[in-house]
């Protein structure tokens, strides 16, 4: 009796074991190491000194003056806020650009849709570094955009449009890098949408805008939420775009982590920044999971009623 009750559970566990090992080994263990390192002391030559210290987290908001007093300094806080701000901006712009693309693809004949999806994902298969460099050629001094202005003598006294090394350039880079992962989930939910509902809405006196607002958007919402989270999370941790397009002057959380490990050799601080980044990501996912559960509870209630 007991054995027979246990066997399926055991079998399930055995079946899940490879996944559990992979997740444990390649995700939980590294995160645990990182969490541990963030509470150790920095070794000036790289690596850590095995002594507990909350210094890395203190360093976020405070600086020690000569008398060893903690003085508030906002530098890192600004980096966090800038990261959040740019990630939110890039996500919103991705949504604005990505939604019409997804809608367009979803309205194509079935045989053309796959071709469009293929075209959308092609850049995704190319090295991100190379693609980001391409934007330097486009946005940079004497770049594709600037040259015509120069020839027409439209440049001002500083002789440049100043597109590069700005928040603008970073956001452009982020949008370009992550637009496919916005388009795909939205497309997935729009593709399931029954476009007869759009006709039904028009039949019931809705203008195109009202139909969009009351039928298409609500039904595409799961895709919009998933796409936004999928774009927001990597944007928050991006370091290639701020590094190459922001000129390394405008740091974001990702670039700060990279800088601490590679250049400043302050591993505990780098780890602490990574933990803070992770916290934002987890908060995001929790919010998403809760939203999904709410939606699930609703449909669950439907199923039971």
């Amino acid at each position: 009796m007991i054995a027979s009750a246990r066997t399926p559970a055991l079998r399930r566990l055995l079946g899940l074991l490879p996944a559990l090992v992979v997740i444990g080994l390649f995700m939980l263990v590294p995160v645990a190491i990182m969490a541990l390192y963030s509470f150790l002391e920095a070794n000036p030559f790289g690596g850590v000194v095995w002594r507990f210290s909350p210094e890395a987290y203190v360093q976020f908001l405070f600086e020690r003056d000569l008398a060893d007093n903690l003085v508030f300094q906002s530098g890192y806080l600004i980096i966090i806020l800038r990261s959040l701000g740019l990630a939110v901006l890039a996500t919103i712009l991705c949504l604005i650009v990505g939604f019409p693309i997804a809608y367009f693809i979803a309205r194509q004949p079935a045989r053309l849709r796959n071709i469009w999806i293929y075209l959308i994902t092609i850049p995704f298969w190319t090295n991100q570094l190379v693609r980001t460099f391409a934007w330097i050629i486009i946005l940079g001094r004497n770049g594709t955009i600037e040259l015509p202005f120069r020839w027409l003598g439209l440049l001002g006294a500083d002789d440049t449009l100043g597109l590069m090394y700005s928040d603008f350039a970073i956001v452009i880079g982020l949008i370009y890098a992550f637009i496919p992962i916005m388009v795909l989930p939205i497309y997935a939910s729009l593709e399931k949408l029954d476009f007869r509902l759009v006709e039904a809405s028009a039949d019931l006196y809705s203008s195109t805008f009202e139909t969009f607002r009351r039928v298409i958007i609500p039904l595409a919402k799961p895709g919009i939420v998933a796409g936004s989270i999928l774009v927001f999370i990597p944007c928050l941790g991006a370091f290639i775009q701020p590094d190459l397009l922001g000129g390394g002057k405008k740091l974001m959380l990702g670039s700060l982590v990279q800088f601490q490990f590679a250049t400043a050799r302050n591993w505990p601080f780098g780890a602490a920044v990574a933990m803070i980044l992770l916290t934002f990501v987890v908060l995001c996912l929790l919010w998403y999971a809760q939203a999904a559960r709410r939606a699930g509870a609703q449909s669950g209630a439907l199923a039971h009623a």
Binding site: D194, R196, E199, D203, L204, Y205
Partner: peptide, 19 residues
């Protein structure tokens, strides 16, 4: 256009708004 005609339709597969 459809949204300005005083005509309503019962669709073959109903097309009720699922949300």
């Amino acid at each position: 256009p459809a949204n300005r005609r005083s005509v309503n339709t019962v669709f073959q597969h109903y097309a009720l708004f699922p949300h």
